[in-house]
């Protein structure tokens, strides 16, 4: 154990370097963008449309896929079944495969010449080059964040409390919604926030399924490729500020201590 002040200073120095490594590029991006560039970027309809599309698509992915991901997380936390290890591994797959490869894999399932793609077209849903495709691509790469956080949250709820609730006459559904979910709420919300945040930044999988309508990471890339750094940087800075503001707000809300309910 390093206990003397020199050791502590050494560790603090190393830690400071890491913090600098994260903060310096972001701060540079924010500080190198002038006030007028911020105003112009915020006023740019294409940027506004793109940011709205990105925020909402990722949010929709969390909401739609969360409906199945949260029960799956509960299952993984509470039940033992054959192949549970494999299921855990499969859930983690999107984190380890290259996201462009994930986009190619998804194309194989949702393109117009697949059964699912055709069925969706029949129902008026377009994946390739459509918002539905963006939602699916964002959800695919980000869903492990929700499943893992929620699974850990459910696992941390003492099973005894669930059994006590059953013993008091509650049905398993009521136990889930009144005991388990409220007690795992903070970690489930954290997982949802992480999934949403990861979805926002997705580029590789989305660009393969839907270049248009353009989500902000693709817009930033397009402006960089077409006009250079000075045109891409303001969009990136505005997008980052908005994402950070929402992220911090959600952390504050989900980080609040659970209060006892009255009445």
């Amino acid at each position: 154990m390093i206990s003397d002040w020199k050791g502590t200073l050494f560790l603090a120095g190393l830690g400071g370097l890491i913090l600098l490594f994260i903060v310096a590029p972001l701060a540079g991006m924010l500080l190198n963008t002038s006030g007028s560039q911020y105003v112009e970027t915020v006023a740019d309809a294409e940027v506004r449309r793109s940011i709205r599309l990105t925020l909402l698509s990722s949010f929709a992915g969390v909401m739609i896929f969360g409906l199945a991901a949260i029960p799956l997380a509960y299952l993984l936390a509470r039940k033992d079944f054959p192949g549970k290890g494999i299921v855990n591994g499969v859930v983690a797959l999107p984190v380890v495969i290259p996201h462009s490869a994930a986009g190619i894999a998804l194309m194989g399932v949702v393109s117009r010449n697949t059964f699912l793609g055709q069925a969706a077209e029949g129902a008026g849903i377009t994946f390739v080059g459509g918002v539905a495709g963006i939602v699916v691509a964002m959800a695919f790469v980000s869903i492990p964040f929700l499943v893992h956080a929620a699974r850990d949250g459910f696992a941390a709820v003492p099973e005894k409390l669930e059994k006590a609730a059953l013993n008091l006459g509650a049905s398993p559904w009521r136990v889930f919604f009144t005991i388990t979910l409220p007690l795992a709420k903070r970690q489930v919300l954290t997982g949802m926030t992480m999934m949403w945040a990861r979805g926002l930044s997705e580029f590789g999988a989305v660009i393969i399924i839907a270049y248009h309508p353009m989500v902000t990471p693709i817009l930033i890339w397009e402006r960089f490729a077409s006009f250079g750094l000075s045109h891409a940087r303001p969009v990136a800075a505005v997008f980052m500020i908005i994402c950070l503001a929402i992220f911090v707000l959600m952390r504050i809300l989900s980080g609040k201590k659970p209060e006892s309910r009255h009445g």
Binding site: A164, A165, G169, L183, S260, R261, H262
Partner: peptide
């Protein structure tokens, strides 16, 4: 095994709600 997220009142009310 009292429910930590519920007040005493809501703990006692829990079985009554059904």
């Amino acid at each position: 095994s009292l429910f930590p997220h519920l007040s005493v009142k809501n703990n006692i009310a829990f079985p009554l709600r059904r």
